[in-house]
Write a protein that binds this DNA or RNA. Structure first.
Length: 197
DNA sequence: AGTGAGATGGCCT
DNA sequence: GGCCATCTCACTA
């Protein structure tokens, strides 16, 4: 079942946790691919120094953050990588969930080998060729190039691990907020090049 | 094993 | 000019 738009209207931490185990559909010109979401981070908008919309900052890049919940937000980082986010809440609350890792559900590589390509926000976008073209899409519409469904996969709260977010040391105290969530024991994000997380 | 640097463009004072 | 919600490769040992 495709997730309805109001799924994304809840508070961002709730949405972030609820997204774990859901299925991301990526349509390319030739095929549709599926992947289970296994790692996310919450970005809490105007009061979160790590968030692009901190203090209501508005730029060309962040326009999609100010759309209603349920839209995609894709931005370029470090000049060469894209990151995929799902916008949450309402236009007045520009918050989002960063998709950090997914488990491919089609033609899978072996997670124990070194060919994992979807265990990082930049890597998964490169693997699925997600770019700025995928910014501002309506994730609750099956006609979109990106949409999200629930295939019945169950996740209990005990399986969800919380810890500080990655790569936001500049954000002072907010760098310690436990806004990163991932599925315990899932093999698909745990090996990252350069070491374990 | 762990560390460090480079790639590269948009956004920010 | 400096920093960044990243990743890879080339060192060290």
């Amino acid at each position: 079942m495709i997730l309805p738009q109001d799924f994304y209207f809840e508070d961002t931490i709730t949405v972030a946790k609820s997204l774990l185990g859901k299925v991301l559909h990526i349509k390319t010109s030739h095929q549709e691919r599926k992947a289970r979401i296994v790692e996310v981070e919450a970005y809490l908008g105007v009061t979160d120094p790590a968030c692009h919309t901190f203090e209501n900052r508005k730029t060309n890049r962040t326009q999609s953050m100010y759309l209603q919940g349920g839209h995609s937000y894709v931005y370029l980082i470090y000049g060469m990588y894209h990151c995929l986010n799902f916008v949450t809440r309402s236009e007045e609350h520009p918050e989002a969930v960063l998709i950090r890792a997914v488990q491919p559900l089609d033609a899978e590589p072996n997670p124990k080998k070194k060919d994992i390509k979807t265990n990082g926000p930049g890597k998964l976008c490169r693997h699925y060729e997600i770019t700025r073209d995928h910014d501002g899409l309506r994730l609750w519409k099956k006609s979109s190039a990106l949409y999200v469904s629930d295939d019945g996969y169950k996740v209990s709260t005990k399986q969800i691990i919380s810890c500080p977010r990655i790569g936001v040391d500049y954000a002072g105290e907010a760098a310690q907020w436990p806004l990163r969530f991932y599925l315990k024991d899932n093999l698909w994000f745990f090996t990252v090049s350069g070491g374990k997380r």
